[in-house]
Computed example of a mutant assay.
Amino acid sequence: MEQLARVGDLARNFRETKLSTLKSPQEFFDHRQLSRPANMNEATSRITYNTRHFSGNYLLLIIVLAVYAMLTNPLLLIAIAFLAGGFAAINKFAPEPVQVGSQTITQKHLYTGLFVIGLPLLFFASPVSTFFWLVGSSSILILGHASLMEPGVESEYQGVEGV
């Protein structure tokens, strides 16, 4: 129960801090603000401004791409579910050693069995290539969007303080 409360607190904190910065789809996909930057300095300043301005939208984009990557790689999904479920089951149902015939089975034995089965399964699921696909695809999308979107008028007054 305590772990569920912690997960709930983390989800609430995530929603309050990161997802509260989400911009509307009309603002995020405003095609009237799209233009090619004149030079590298302008592209860099656009990327700097837009990554802060649209940080919640970019985080949501990464989450959607990660879910897509997991759903299109079912072996990876099975391997992660097997390992996570195995950890949860061992912690919940086998905290104490169990006597089976003349053998005593401890948590260490169960974890060893979980790793002997789970790690080769995870290896064949190719998590490294999935990770690099996620990094590459999200980088291309985010940097492309951030460099092509012109900053709004409010960016001109960002450093100005009220008198």
Rank of each mutant, 00 (worst) to 15 (best):
K108W: 12
L110A: 15
F115G: 07
L59W: 12
N73L: 06
T104A: 09
L114Y: 04
I78R: 04
P97Q: 07
V116R: 03
I90A: 05
V116D: 07
L61V: 14
Y68K: 00
A88R: 10
S102T: 11
G113W: 15
F54Q: 07
M70W: 02
F123V: 08
V67T: 08
M70D: 03
L114I: 06
P74L: 05
L59D: 02
G56C: 06
L65S: 03
K108A: 15
T104W: 01
I105Q: 04
L83S: 05
I78F: 15
L77I: 06
V98A: 13
L71P: 00
P97H: 10
A89G: 04
I62W: 09
S55W: 15
L83V: 09
P74W: 02
K92W: 13
T106P: 12
I63G: 13
F54W: 11
N73I: 03
V67S: 11
A84C: 04
A79G: 00
Y58M: 10
Y111Q: 06
A88I: 14
L59Q: 06
I63N: 02
L119Y: 14
Q103R: 10
P120V: 08
I117E: 01
A79Y: 03
T106M: 09
L76N: 07
Y68V: 15
L110W: 06
T112M: 04
G56N: 10
V67Q: 09
V98E: 15
F124C: 11
I62P: 01
T72L: 00
L114N: 08
Y58N: 01
S102I: 12
Q99D: 12
T112Y: 06
I105N: 05
L65E: 14
A88H: 11
S126G: 08
T72S: 10
L61I: 14
Y111W: 07
P120S: 10
L119T: 03
L77T: 15
N73R: 12
L60I: 08
M70L: 15
I105G: 02
I63M: 11
A125H: 03
Q99C: 06
G56M: 08
Y68W: 14
P95W: 01
F115L: 13
L59M: 11
F93C: 10
I117W: 07
M70N: 12
F93I: 00
F87R: 05
I78T: 14
G118L: 02
K108L: 11
A81C: 09
V98D: 10
L122Q: 04
F115P: 02
L83N: 11
P97L: 09
L114W: 03
K92N: 08
A66F: 13
L110E: 05
L83K: 02
A79M: 03
I62A: 15
G118K: 03
L110I: 03
N73V: 04
I63Q: 12
A125Y: 02
F123D: 06
I80Q: 01
I63W: 06
G118C: 05
F93G: 15
I80H: 05
